[in-house]
């Protein structure tokens, strides 16, 4: 157990070092990413669940909103000026944060949709079972609906 924890900590340290190293060489990207992904950070802070479904949901959509500007930065001019220029455009904020909002929307709407689907499917199964019971009663008579013990008592 102690060895496993040590390995995990080592792996984390290595990853942080690599990411930190990369971040030093890609600071404009980090700037766009840092500002654009703030809703994800907010979602992560708000998400109390261990599985972090809300973070994942918002993060995916948020990243999709941030990615065009990152690609724009990489393909046109990877500099602070261009980064600030992009951040300075309201449309950029709209895209990045709108995408995050869509993530939240998905997160809030999905349980309702799933709930409706579950309810519908369960009703269908109950109807099928009731239909089968009716068929059994039609074929074997009302006695089939009695429990075996009840049947014996009647006999």
């Amino acid at each position: 157990m102690a060895a496993s924890t040590a390995n995990s900590a080592a792996t984390r340290t290595i990853l942080i070092t690599i990411i930190g190293g990369l971040a030093i060489f890609t600071l404009p990207t980090v700037l766009i990413l840092g500002i654009g992904m703030l809703p994800t950070l907010g979602a992560m802070l708000a998400d109390r669940r261990k599985e972090k479904y809300a973070t994942l949901c918002v993060g995916c959509m948020n990243f999709m909103g941030v990615l065009p500007y990152m690609v724009q930065l990489w393909t046109e001019e990877h500099s602070y000026d261009r980064a600030f220029q992009l951040i300075g455009q309201p449309f950029t904020w709209l895209v990045m944060y709108g995408a995050a909002a869509i993530g939240w929307a998905i997160f809030f709407v999905a349980p309702g949709v799933v709930g409706m689907f579950i309810a519908m499917r369960t009703e269908q199964r109950i109807q099928a079972l009731r239909r089968r019971q009716r068929e059994l009663v039609e074929e074997w008579g009302p006695g089939v609906a009695r429990q075996k013990g009840q049947d014996d008592d009647k006999e």
Binding site: Y53, A54, G59, C60, F107, V114
Partner: peptide
């Protein structure tokens, strides 16, 4: 159940949408 499953579905959907969009 819907909450449990819905959040999972939302995560999957967002993941799929995000991947496709990206």
């Amino acid at each position: 159940l819907a909450t449990e499953l819905g959040e999972q579905v939302a995560a999957v959907c967002a993941g799929v949408l995000g991947s496709i969009g990206s």
